[in-house]
Simulated scan of single mutants.
Amino acid sequence: MDIFKILDEIQKIDGDAMGRLEHATRRHFMSKIGSKIAAVAVPTAFASIVNKAYAQSAGAIDILNFALTLEYLEDGFYQTANAAAGLIPSTDKAIFTQIGKHETQHVAFLKGALGAKAVAKPTFDFTGKGAFATVFTDYNTFLTVSHALEDTGVRAYKGQAGGLMADPDLLQYALQVHSVEARHASIVRKLLGAATGNAAIKSWITNAAGAPAAVYAGDDNKTQGGVNLTGLAGKSDAAITEAFDEPLTKDQVLAIAGLFL
């Protein structure tokens, strides 16, 4: 969710943001990604661009540190879980090992962009102030929190997508990252449904099945774009909830992250 959020928030505090980044993103960044830079180098390349364009911007530094704090949260969560003996079944271990690697890469990207101005990793309460007390001893609880964090990431992408419409090249790249986050959310939901024996929890959202209300309430929302779709001809309420996902604003994301700080 980082690149969507970073560029959207930078644009809010600096109306000339896309102009500042235009040369680097269009002529340098994307052309090299397409022909010379391996996928693993993308975070480093983008971090360098952000540093050059915003070296003196205190507002941009604050935004990047906000994003870094969220990535610290996810990275720390999976590091702790993957190290917890007996928590993740051997059949699922490879999945969460890979997800953890992705989150570690996100942290490295942001720290590279910020350099010496990066905030230190805070102390997290992964129990959500007691709401998930057995998160690292009970697999089902772990899956519930993982599901909450991954779904939050997907919604954060959706909430910030409009800010990249002015730069289709970056939008395309960000959507590629978003698709990975969506796959994380999908597999975690599938594992949660299997582990709990709840057939209502699928790889996609249906009503509020599996939603941890302590983190986010709204999976069963049927109003999209200000239009209440309840009673849409030929469509059940369940089908409507499956067809859309809710965007999250910055304040909503902060409220969710705050549960674990």
Rank of each mutant, 00 (worst) to 15 (best):
T44Y: 15
Y216T: 00
D245H: 09
D125Y: 00
V107C: 09
G197D: 08
G210Y: 00
L149S: 04
T44W: 15
A200G: 15
G128C: 09
L143C: 01
Q11T: 06
V135W: 01
S236L: 05
A41C: 02
P247E: 06
T230E: 07
H23T: 13
H147N: 03
G225C: 08
V253Y: 04
T97F: 06
A161S: 14
T223R: 03
Q105A: 11
L229C: 01
T144K: 04
L7W: 07
A39E: 12
A243M: 14
A84T: 05
L259G: 05
I6Y: 14
R189A: 11
E22D: 13
Y157V: 08
K93I: 08
R26S: 09
G231D: 03
Q79A: 10
F109W: 15
N82P: 00
T249I: 01
K222F: 07
K235T: 03
G225L: 11
D14Y: 07
V145D: 05
F142M: 01
A200T: 14
D251P: 04
L149P: 06
F142V: 02
L248G: 03
D2W: 11
V227A: 07
I49L: 13
A38F: 12
L171S: 11
A209M: 14
M30N: 05
G15M: 12
D2P: 09
I95T: 14
A41D: 10
D16E: 13
Q252K: 05
D220V: 04
G100M: 01
L170P: 09
D219G: 01
G128Q: 09
G15N: 13
F4A: 01
V177S: 08
G163T: 10
G231P: 00
P247M: 02
A83H: 05
A108K: 13
H28C: 13
S203Q: 12
H28T: 12
